[in-house]
Design a protein around this nucleic acid. Structure first.
Lengths: 183, 183, 183, 183
DNA sequence: GATGAATGAGAGTTCATTCAT
DNA sequence: GATGAATGAACTCTCATTCAT
C-alpha cells in the first residue's frame, strides 16, 4: 500500500509534470495531448507515463491535488470562524475557475469522468463545515442544503468559464447567487 | 451572392444530418465522430461534408437552429404576457439542458468555440423582452440586467449537466437561482 | 450478416493488403508492424485498419484464406482417389511451411492465437477424408488417428521452419515421419 | 583477455536473473519485457542490462545454460549404457518442452535468432553418443543420421507446445516418432 | 556494482477531411 | 449530388536501453 519514497529527481519531475499538466489542461481543456504536457514539463513522454500510467491517472492526480488545496483553504476559512466564510470561499473558487478549466472539471466531470466523484466528497466535508457555521450564525437560510451549495458552486464555475463573462459580470452573478442563499 | 435553391433531396439530407447530429452530440458530446453522425442520418460521410465543410460548421449550424427554437419559444411566452414568463423560460431551458449537451454548448462554447458568440445575441433579444416584461410587472428586482440573467442561465445549464444533479436537486437549485432574481 | 459487395477499388486494395501481409508476416513473423504491411501494399495505414479493424483481424483473415487453400488442395487430392494422397498432402504442406511462417502459425498458433482454433477444424475435415481413404487401402496403420496426423504435421511444419533444415534434411525427416504412419 | 572474477553478489544476481528469465520467457514467450524479468529476479532493470547488455544476450545465456543441462542429462544416460537411452532422452525433452517455450526456442530459434545455432552443436555431440550406442545395439535403423534425430526432436518439441496437444496425444505422437526410428 | 528514472523510437488505433467512382 | 474508400497526422501507450544517483 505505502510506496517507497521517490528519488529526488523523480519527485521533482513528478511535480513538474503535474504543474505542466495543470497549465496545459487549463488552457486547452482535458483533450490536450499528453505529448504537449511532456513538452511543457521539459521531459519525454515516457516519463509522463512512468509517473501516470494512463492519461486518466494524470487527470485524477491533478484533480486530487486541486481538491486538496481547495479543501485546505476551506478548512482555514472555517477555522477563522467568520460566519460569512462560506461566501468568501464560494467567490474565491469561482474566481479561480474563471481562468482555469481544471476547477470546473473537478466540480463536474461531465463525461470524461476520472473518478472525481469521490474527490468531491472530500471537498464536500469541508464545505459542510462552512455551511454549518453560516447556518448557525443565521447567515444563510435554514433550509439550504449542502448539495444545493455544491450545485450552485458548480454552476457558477462552469458559467465563469463561459465566453463573455467579464470580471464585472462574474462579480454581479456571484453576488446574485449568494443572495439566493441569504435569508 | 444568393445561392441556388437546393435540390429536394439535398434539402431533405441537410435536415436529416442536422437532426442526427443533434442526437449524437447530445449523447456523446461534441467529440463524437462525424462518421457516427452520418450513420445515424443514414447518409455517407461525404454527404455530411458536402453540406457542412467542416465539423465546426456542422456544430455552428446546430447551434443556430437551437438558438432559433429557443428564441421562438421565448417570443411565444412573451406574447402571452405572463410577467413570470421569464421564470418559466429559465426553468424550461435548464430542464432541456439536463438531458442534452447541446444547449450547454450553445450557452457557453467553452473552447470548441464555433462562432456561437453571435448567436447568443439573437437569443438575448428574446430574453430581453421577457426580462423587460418581468421588470415592469415588478416580478424581478429593478437592478437585474440582461447579462446577469444569461450568466445565471448558462451556469444553471452547465450545472444541470453535471453528474449527480438529480431532478430534485435540479429543481431546488433552479428555485434558488430564480429567487435570486426576485425582489 | 451478408455485407454489401465491395467497390472495385476496395476489393483490389483488400487483396493487396492481404498479399502484402502474407509476405511480411512470412518474412518477419506476426510481430511485424502493420505500418510495414501498409507500406508493402502501397496504401496508408488507415486503409489497412479500414479493412481489418484490428491486427488480429488481419491475422485471422490471412489464416482463413490459407486454410481455405489448403483444404481445397486436400479435397482435390481426395477426389483423385490415390490412397497415398495423405502422404502427398503432408509433404506438400511441410514444403510450403519451410518458406513461410504463416502455415506454421495456422497449424499451431502458439500464444498469439487469433481464433485459428476453429479454422483448423475445417482443415481437419479435409484431412480426415484423406486419412480414411488411406486406411481403407491399407496405406496407413489401422490405429492411426486424425489428431496424431495433425500433430505430426504441425510438428513437421514447425521443424521445417527451424534454422538448419536443408531441403535434403527436410525430405528425410518427412520420410521418417510418414514411415511412422505406415504399417 | 580473461575477465576478473565476479564479486559474490554479482554472481548471485546473475544466477537469479537467469532463473527468473527462464520462468518469465517460459510463461509469456520471449516477447515478455525485460522489466518483468528484473521484477521476478528481485533486481532493478539496470542490473539485468549490466549482466546482459542486450535482451538477445540474455536469451543466448539462457539457451546456453539449458543446452548444458540437456547435454549433461544425455551424457548421464549414455554412461548408463542402456541401448534405448536415445528414446528415453527424446521423450524427456519433449515432455519438458510441453510446459516450457524455452526448450523449443533452443532447438529452433525461429527468427529471434540469438546465436543458438552453435549451441545446438554441443547438444549434438551428446545426442550423437546416444545415437551411436543405439545403432550398435540395433535399436535404431542403420541409416538414421544425427541431423534427422535432431530434426524430429525439434519438430516434436514445437508440436508439443502447440495448443491442443493433450498429454495423451503427446504420448501417442512421440511413440509414432520413435517408431519411425526403429528397424 | 546496483538502482530505477528518463529516454524516445515505434506500435496499434482513430478520425477529420479529400476525392475517385 | 451522393458515395464510401483512402489518406495521414495525431494520439495513447510500451519497452529496450542509457545514465545520473
Amino acid at each position: 500500500m505505502s510506496e517507497p519514497p521517490l528519488r529526488a529527481d523523480a519527485r521533482r519531475n513528478r511535480a513538474r509534470i503535474l504543474a505542466a499538466a495543470v497549465e496545459v489542461f487549463d488552457e486547452h481543456g482535458t483533450s490536450a495531448s499528453t505529448e504537449e504536457v511532456a513538452r511543457r514539463a521539459g521531459v519525454a513522454v515516457g516519463t509522463v507515463f512512468r509517473h501516470f500510467p494512463t492519461k486518466a491517472d494524470l487527470l485524477a492526480a491533478i484533480m486530487k491535488e486541486l481538491q486538496g488545496r481547495l479543501a485546505a483553504r476551506a478548512e482555514t476559512l472555517a477555522a477563522e470562524g467568520d460566519p460569512a466564510a462560506l461566501f468568501t470561499f464560494f467567490a474565491e473558487v469561482v474566481e479561480r475557475a474563471a481562468g482555469a478549466r481544471t476547477v470546473v472539471h473537478l466540480l463536474a466531470a461531465d463525461g470524461t469522468d476520472v473518478g472525481v466523484d469521490r474527490q468531491i466528497a472530500g471537498l464536500g466535508e469541508a464545505l459542510d463545515a462552512l455551511l454549518a457555521r453560516a447556518r448557525e450564525a443565521g447567515a444563510v437560510r435554514a433550509e439550504v442544503r449542502l448539495d444545493e451549495v455544491i450545485a450552485l458552486l458548480t454552476a457558477a464555475c462552469h458559467g465563469a468559464l463561459a465566453a463573455g463573462w467579464t470580471p464585472d459580470l462574474r462579480h454581479r452573478a456571484v453576488t446574485r447567487l449568494l443572495d439566493a442563499l441569504r435569508p
